[in-house]
Structures are given as structure tokens and as C-alpha cells.
């Protein structure tokens, strides 16, 4: 296993006080704090080369977990091993084999072209010059960065900067990638580009990836397996397909029919647009509804599971 997490728990003590001057004065003398459980008894493991989506709403404990896995935070209790290392010891051999990309944080030198920051990474990670040039050129080509790496980073657009950041984070060819919202704030085209790159990188290098994202398209495109977390606890760990099957009881049937009479009785009528109707039905009744629709002169028909976003919402609600 590349990542093994067992009974991981992390709590934070946060100051708490009411609003207003009186509460401010009181807090000078007596400070009240509350213990917040950010991660609670989390256990999972990830095999080499696996791409796992780590999903959950804001404040679910995703980033805290990633920080513990990358050695930035000490676990409160429980054990973590990444590539056989205890991350919180931050051994150099461990740090040379992982990377953490945070979509909202910059690692590149703001005033210099990305190429100069890459040189710095070469020195920091002690990458032999020929390997460095080969990997850098491959990444720049895969991400279609071209001459953007020669411009000062401050002059790049958000998307260009993110791509340049990803190159910088992968120059040392890490085996394990922790990606925290790598496509946050990017337009759809740029999101697709980065998704395609990550898929290609994973297949070329067999890297292990743990990805958090609020964009379900990222997860669907990259992850066969997802871990769903809420309020610090794991709610689901398994394949994305099984998640849909387990938590979504309904399917959407869209059909073009000649005769619309009596359709409402077949299920929940979502919309009618000319001769095109959309129905929502319980999964176990799908076959029967399709059979019934045949009697209405069907010329076109599709059956769809609900969007992953809806399924995830269902998981949190359950």
C-alpha cells in the first residue's frame, strides 16, 4: 500500500466568545475555548497507482487529512504511513517522493518566470540536470504551457499559473500526489485540460493520487474510487459506480413519444417539451415503465442515473 491510514483523529482548540464589547472585556480575563473535531477515526488505504477522490462539503476534514498525510500536521491520534514513512517526521526521503498541490496556494516565485522557480526546485530536490530537463520539457508539453514559462508568474492568468504550479510540483517525479482542489476557480476548458493531464500523468508514471475537488467532473473523469467524508468521519469508501447504485433510488427516463396521454401515472413527470417527456421513476420500476412507454409510440429513449452531485448530496443527507 502507498497510503495507510488507521484510526486517524485530529482536534483543534478554537477560542469562542460572544459578540460585543462586554464579551471582549470578559475574554481578556477568562478565555473560553471549544474543541473541534476535524477528523475522527478515519481509516482507509490506497494502492500504488490508484486515483482516489476524497469528497466532502466544506469543513468536512478533507484538507486536514491531506495535511496530515503530507506531514504538515501532526495527527492527534491514530497512525498514518505514506510510502512506508511516518509523514509528520518529514524525512527528506519522504518529501522527495510526494507532492501537495493546493489550488489556492502559490509556490512559484511571483516576480520571476516559472523556469527560474523550476531551477530552484531542481536544486532543492537535487534532480540530476538531464532528468530535470527531460521531465520539465515533458510536463510543459503535456500541459501545453509553451512560452508561458518564460513570463514572470505575476503576468500569467489564473489557469496558466495553475498549470505552471503543477509543473513545479511534479518536477521531482513524486510517487504520491495529494491534490487539493487543483481546478478551483478555473474555467471549464482549463479544468478539462488539467483533468486530461492528470489522467495522462497517472497512466504514464503509475503515480498514486488522492484528489479533493468540488467539481464532480474532476472526480468522474479521474477516480474509479471515492472516499466520502463529512464532519470528520468517512461515510462511504468504494467505487463511484456502487455509490450511485447504493444511494440513488431513482432514475431519469427521457423519451420522445407519439401519445402523451396517461404518462403522469407512470412516474414523476419532470418536464414535457413538445413530444419529448422526462420522467423520474424508482429504479426497480424502470423496466416496467419502459415497457409501458412502448405502448405510447416511443421513437427515442434514454435512461440515466442522477448526476453524481445529487448522489453525494444524498450520501450527506442519509
Amino acid at each position: 500500500m502507498d497510503i495507510e491510514v488507521d484510526g486517524l483523529r485530529k482536534t483543534f482548540r478554537v477560542p469562542r466568545r460572544e459578540a460585543g464589547l462586554r464579551a471582549s472585556l470578559r475574554s481578556l480575563v477568562r478565555r473560553t475555548t471549544t474543541e473541534v473535531v476535524a477528523v475522527d477515526a478515519v481509516s482507509f488505504s490506497v494502492e500504488p497507482g490508484e486515483v482516489v477522490g476524497f469528497l466532502g462539503p466544506n469543513g468536512a476534514g478533507k484538507t486536514t487529512t491531506l495535511k496530515m498525510l503530507s506531514g504538515l500536521l501532526f495527527p492527534g491520534s491514530g497512525t498514518v504511513r505514506v510510502l512506508g514513512h511516518v509523514p509528520s517526521r518529514r524525512e527528506h526521503d519522504f518529501l522527495r517522493r510526494i507532492t501537495l498541490v493546493m489550488g489556492n496556494r502559490n509556490q512559484l516565485q511571483w516576480d520571476l518566470p516559472a523556469l527560474d522557480s523550476y531551477e530552484m526546485n531542481r536544486a532543492i530536490y537535487r534532480i540530476p540536470a538531464p532528468d530535470f530537463r527531460r521531465v520539465r520539457d515533458e510536463l510543459v508539453e503535456l500541459l501545453d504551457l509553451g512560452d508561458q514559462v518564460r513570463k514572470p508568474v505575476r503576468q500569467l492568468s489564473l489557469g496558466e499559473r495553475m498549470k505552471a504550479e503543477i509543473v513545479g510540483a511534479l518536477l521531482h517525479s513524486p510517487q504520491v500526489l495529494f491534490l487539493d482542489e487543483p481546478t478551483i476557480g478555473l474555467d471549464v476548458t482549463m479544468q478539462k485540460r488539467i483533468r486530461a493531464f492528470l489522467a495522462e500523468y497517472n497512466s504514464r508514471h503509475g503515480a498514486t493520487v488522492l484528489l479533493t475537488s468540488h467539481y464532480m467532473a474532476d472526480v468522474q473523469a479521474l477516480c474509479k474510487r471515492v472516499v466520502v467524508i463529512d464532519a470528520g468521519r468517512i461515510l462511504y469508501d468504494g467505487s463511484l459506480r456502487t455509490l450511485s447504485a447504493r444511494y440513488s433510488q431513482r432514475q431519469t427516463i427521457t423519451a420522445t413519444v407519439a401519445d402523451r396521454a396517461g404518462l403522469a401515472g407512470l412516474g414523476e413527470l419532470v418536464s414535457v417539451d413538445g413530444d419529448r417527456v422526462t420522467l423520474r421513476v424508482d429504479k426497480e420500476r424502470s423496466a416496467a415503465v419502459v415497457a409501458a412507454l412502448l405502448g405510447h409510440g416511443v421513437t427515442d429513449l434514454t435512461i440515466e442515473d442522477p448526476p453524481v452531485e445529487d448522489v453525494i448530496e444524498q450520501v450527506f443527507a442519509s
Binding site: 506531514g71 527528506h92 518529501l95 522527495r96 507532492t99 501537495l100 496556494r105 509556490q107 532543492i124 530536490y125
Partner: peptide, 13 residues
């Protein structure tokens, strides 16, 4: 506050 230190801590130096 800007998280710059976290980035530095991820480097093997």
C-alpha cells in the same frame, strides 16, 4: 497566514 511556510515545509531542505 498566507500558507507560504507550509509550502516550504514540503521541501526536503
Amino acid at each position: 497566514q498566507q500558507g507560504e511556510l507550509s509550502g516550504m515545509l514540503l521541501r526536503p531542505v
